[in-house]
Design a protein around this nucleic acid. Structure first.
Length: 201
DNA sequence: CCACGGATTGGCT
DNA sequence: GCCAATCCGTGGA
């Protein structure tokens, strides 16, 4: 894999849909000590608190969602269903309340560690490998992302995203978002066509 | 193959 | 008190 540069602040401070689509194909990196966990981003969803009832920020700032108002380039981690964490990339300008939910990545490096984080064992089935990082809470479990990572700076050294060439539009599919009950018809889920690590088709 | 529901905490009404 | 930007196991067709 050709090593690319870390994405900088100006990447994240643009329009949420442009950033969401450009995040596809880029590399999510988490460092733990001297180890690297790396996955290619293959599925995301855009959330825009200014118009989108499904966004956590739609009703204004609270203790839980305040990181989403911090402006582009931060990690917003939230806890849900009493047992799961999900990761978002905060996007846009200060106080806009916009973010991109990371829904699926294709595991590339540090897979052995991800397997232990997810399943608590080293040997797994083909089905378990397929289910390693194909969902928002699965990414967090595999990458060891939890409450304490909320608000981390994505231009820092611990969690960041590496650049890769922009995908052509014909490789990107837009569809409705998953698991929400409000604003259900907005086509704000974006994914890489035919990738085998999608959470759904 | 698909549909359903339990797990389990904490944020907000 | 209600219910969530989920996951996984179970049970029926």
């Amino acid at each position: 894999m050709k090593l690319q540069k870390k994405l900088l602040k100006k990447f994240y401070t643009r329009d949420v849909h442009i950033v969401a689509k450009e995040l596809l194909g880029k590399y999510l990196v988490r460092t733990t000590g001297h180890k690297y966990l790396i996955g290619k981003i293959v599925e995301v969803e855009a959330y825009d608190g200014s118009v989108d009832e499904a966004a956590h920020t739609y009703g204004g700032k609270t203790k839980r969602n305040e990181v989403m108002f911090n402006g582009g380039g931060f990690l917003y981690v939230y806890f849900t269903y009493g047992m799961h964490f999900c990761s978002n990339v905060v996007v846009g300008k200060l106080n806009e309340g916009k973010a991109v939910l990371l829904r699926a990545v294709e595991p590339l490096s540090g897979i052995g560690q991800m397997v232990v984080n997810r399943f608590g064992k080293k040997d797994i089935s083909a089905l378990e490998l397929k289910n390693l990082t194909n969902g928002p809470a699965k990414i967090c479990q595999a990458f060891g992302i939890a409450r304490g990572d909320n608000g981390k700076d994505l231009t820092g050294k611990e969690i960041f995203i590496l650049d890769s060439p922009k995908l052509s539009e014909n490789k990107i599919v837009a569809s409705t978002r998953i698991g929400i009950k409000k604003s259900v018809d907005l086509p704000w889920r974006y994914y890489i066509k035919n990738n085998s690590f999608l959470s759904r088709k």
